[in-house]
Design a protein around this nucleic acid. Structure first.
Length: 492
RNA sequence: CGGGAGGUAGUUCAGCCCGGUAGAAUACCUGGUUUGGGACCAGGGGGUCGCAGGUUCGAAUCCUGUCCUCCCGACCA
């Protein structure tokens, strides 16, 4: 089968879908809006998860697990949060099926098995967790609580897209409780830094750290911090969020503690999360018309070796050499795969592993053995070189680092070129329509103007960058005075 | 949720208008020749035509319903 990939220029959306499906990351399923994450895609997620998990633990967090279901009465306790998610909740109303009396072999919902109280399938877990924390916290000595959970959540989205927006998705959600506001804000910012560190240094994807406007804030938060990335089509993607929840949930669930002077106060909270959506961002930011390009640090397979041989004798000689190469690479903790399957010829394998985004391909044949070399091909640049087998493993190790860095540099150069100042409304629209990317523009600071801009230009304020430069200016829409530029973009 | 397109072999699709024994390419299996950018020859297996009803002597084809997918929009922290 020839797996033709639609080019980005021809149809960007289709290109994206082709990469996910033909690259073997995921499949559609029989369930509306839900995808199957295939082994290759899940291996990628596992690598991301393992790195993040270690980062969380290194910053003092521990893992726990809370229920999938949230009783409706708990869910509605924090009103802002509940209202924000109400429209996209799946709800369990019954607990039993029974044989359909009219059609043999079919089942119907047993009307007698209606739940006293409906259960909401979590779209996020603040409610069930804060209901639990109430029982864990009495004194300042019980704080802070630094808990993370790896889980699935369900948000009944109108329109879904593989990885970027699915009805069910995998994520982690950190939920912390603190004695002081200052400590909670420090935690919120610390976790934002962890996300930025991960996305930039492991996924090779540059991000802008900032805070959301009240309009775009997480329902129930006092402040939402975010990291924003830029995709190759010039649209922005929210890659992670970290929320300062104030005392909102503590008040909703009556979680108080005694401080060291025996004074009662509500607990301060944060929550933060990243999801499988990151995979969508990874795909869109780095890949090309030949397939995926995965950053070496998280690629399931970092190096693939393809043998080229005529006959059994040559194959045996190559096997012997390759086995020693594999041993050397494994000693350096490099994830290597030897594809000596005989049902595909080398050319087919080359194309296949390019599609799957394996960072480095080693091709080795009799000709190479005679010269004590191997052909090394980089996925990111498509560059091929002949490299001596002596010291090959060190060369590969260095090359993996070079590729990782090159991918980041390339993405960053593209991102930096696509942050443009706009001083007038016409200029603003012009940039969004033609150049695309982030537009840095003055805004009068009102939710009404933000809403109006969204309606007219289909662009939202992605964030107000941290440590944003302060400068006098006038709002691009209303002409009212403004103290700083904010980052707008069309977004996923 | 609105508009458009689609669901037939593992995959990509033809057949449908005009009802009458389900096709092609590719993939797969066997044997052989091959192997430095998606190999070739010969033989072979594989589909309740998304699902459920209806019309009919007969339905992939006509009708109704329903599920799923894609694209555009609305929605979306």
């Amino acid at each position: 089968m020839s797996k033709e990939i639609t080019s980005r220029q021809q149809d960007y959306s289709q290109w994206y879908n082709d990469l996910i499906l033909k690259g073997g990351l995921a499949d559609y399923s029989a369930v509306r809006g839900c995808m199957v994450i295939k082994p290759y895609g899940f291996a990628l997620w596992e690598n991301m998860r393992d790195v993040l998990d270690k980062m969380f633990k290194d910053t003092g967090h521990v893992n726990a697990y809370f229920p999938l279901f949230v009783p409706k009465s708990l869910f509605e306790a924090e009103e802002t949060n509940a209202e924000g998610f109400a429209k996209e909740c799946a709800i369990v109303t019954h607990y039993r099926l029974k044989a359909d009396p009219n059609i043999k072999g079919k089942l119907i919902v047993d009307p007698e098995a209606k739940l006293e109280e409906e259960l909401v399938v979590r779209p996020t877990s603040e409610a069930i967790i804060w209901n639990t924390y109430k029982g864990w916290i009495q004194s300042y000595r019980d704080l802070p609580i630094l808990v993370n959970q790896w889980a699935n959540v369900v948000r009944w989205e109108m329109r879904t897209r593989l990885f970027l927006r699915t009805a069910e998705f995998l994520w982690q959600e950190g939920h912390t409780a603190h004695a002081t506001k200052e400590e909670a804000i420090i935690e919120t910012e610390k976790m934002l830094d962890v996300y930025a560190d991960f996305v930039e240094n492991w996924m090779a994807l540059p991000v802008i750290k900032g805070i959301k406007t009240p309009n775009e804030r997480f329902a129930g938060a006092d402040e939402t911090y975010c990291i924003e990335a830029l995709m190759q089509d010039g649209k922005a993607l929210q890659a992670g969020t970290s929320h300062f929840l104030g005392q909102n949930f503590a008040k909703a669930f009556d979680v108080k503690f005694s401080d060291m002077h025996n004074k009662l106060d509500y607990v301060w909270a944060t929550s933060w999360g990243v999801s499988t959506r990151l995979i969508g961002g990874l795909v869109m930011a780095h890949s090309d018309d030949d397939g995926l390009i995965l950053p070496p640090k998280i690629a399931p397979t970092q190096v693939v070796i393809v043998p080229i041989y005529k006959g059994e004798t040559e194959k045996n000689l190559i096997d012997e050499k390759v086995n020693s190469i594999i041993q050397q690479l494994k000693q350096l903790n490099i994830r290597v795969k030897y594809d000596d399957s005989d049902n595909a010829r080398p050319g087919w394998k080359f194309a296949e592993y390019e599609m799957k985004g394996v960072p480095i391909r080693i091709a080795i044949g009799a000709r190479d053995l005679a010269n004590n070399v191997a052909e090394i091909a980089r996925r990111d640049t498509k560059e091929k070189t002949s490299v001596s087998l002596d010291g090959l493993s060190n060369h590969i190790q260095n090359l993996l680092q070079t590729i990782q860095q090159n991918m980041f540099d390339k993405a960053k150069a593209y991102r930096d070129e696509h942050i443009t100042n706009a001083n007038t409304w016409d200029e603003f629209l012009q940039i969004l329509d033609n150049k695309t990317g982030f537009v840095n523009a003055h805004w009068d600071g009102t939710p009404e103007t933000e809403e109006k801009i969204k309606e007219l230009a289909k662009a939202t304020i992605r964030c107000i960058p941290l440590n944003n430069k302060q400068e006098e200016g006038i709002c691009i829409l209303t002409g009212k005075p403004s103290k700083q530029r904010v980052l707008f973009a069309r977004a996923y």
